[in-house]
């Protein structure tokens, strides 16, 4: 269980602008092993929220409680950014290996080999990121996040600007890998179809300051989520929730 309770996150006043409150009284929890999508218009504070959860920004009021298996264990957090953020001067394999915790966990090279193979990157292992297409780079970023065997995986629109067939392929790979080792995922997107395809539960966010306006469970079984069912679900959602329709 992950409990998130953010009383306030704001950007300090500068010479030109007044203090700006981005997130206020945002409270929600994630079940262990749950796949949550967050949907909201751009600029609604989603990336800010992820940075708080990843511990990159500690300047806020509130608490984030991550589940912990035991006292001496700090949960692994994987973060897939909006851009792949691979170090261009290190090869694909080096990029992945660098992210692994030290000392190296047992069997980590087997885990990495396996992920690389599943994602179809075996031939690209020793290439530099600049030689890769965007779709491939995104897959490498996914492998890097999965390789650390995260307890909590944050994903910030990781498939944006991929063409539709490539995006579908990577989405499927994501679900396949996740199913083999279920862990809590928080996936941010502005694409509702993508959210319905991937999520157990969708949180709808409204901007400034960020608040949750709806919390919807997806009750279609994962195996049978095809375009038609997703469209039907979306339609129903819009009919029942005026607010969501206005939001998107």
């Amino acid at each position: 269980m992950i409990n998130i309770n953010i009383q306030e996150k704001s950007w300090p006043a500068t010479e030109r602008t007044a203090k700006q409150s981005v997130i206020k009284n945002l409270k929600f929890s994630l079940e262990s092993g749950e796949f949550i999508c967050m949907v909201g218009p751009s600029g609604c504070g989603k990336s800010t929220l992820l940075n708080l959860l990843a511990g990159l920004d500690s300047d806020f009021e509130g608490q984030i409680q991550l589940e912990s298996k035991s006292k001496n264990y700090s949960p692994h957090i994987g973060y897939v950014f909006q851009n792949p953020r691979l170090l261009p001067w290190r090869t694909v394999r080096e990029n992945i290996d660098l992210a692994l915790p030290e000392p190296l966990p047992e069997q980590s090279s087997v885990v990495v080999d396996n992920l690389i193979e599943v994602m179809g990157l075996t031939g690209a292992q020793h290439k530099y990121p600049e030689m890769l297409s965007l779709g491939m780079s995104r897959r490498v970023a996914l492998v890097r996040a999965f390789a650390i065997q995260p307890d909590f995986l944050l994903m910030d629109e990781p498939f944006v600007s991929l063409d539709a067939p490539t995006a579908r392929k990577v989405q499927k790979l994501l679900i396949d890998v996740w199913k083999k080792r279920p862990h809590t995922v928080l996936f941010v997107t502005h694409d509702l179809n993508e959210a319905i395809l991937l999520a157990d539960r969708i949180l709808f966010l409204a901007p400034s300051p960020t608040k949750i306006i709806a919390d919807i469970k997806i009750d279609i079984s994962r195996e049978s989520r095809d375009e038609e069912k997703i469209d039907r679900f979306k339609k129903k959602l819009f009919e029942e929730n005026e607010e969501i329709r206005m939001l998107l």
């Binding site: 990843a54 511990g55 990159l56 957090i77 851009n83 660098l98 992210a99 890097r144």
Partner: peptide, 13 residues
């Protein structure tokens, strides 16, 4: 800055 954030979130020494 992007690379530093990446390094920080993956706990680089």
């Amino acid at each position: 800055k992007d690379y530093f954030e990446m390094a920080e979130s993956y706990n680089f020494s």
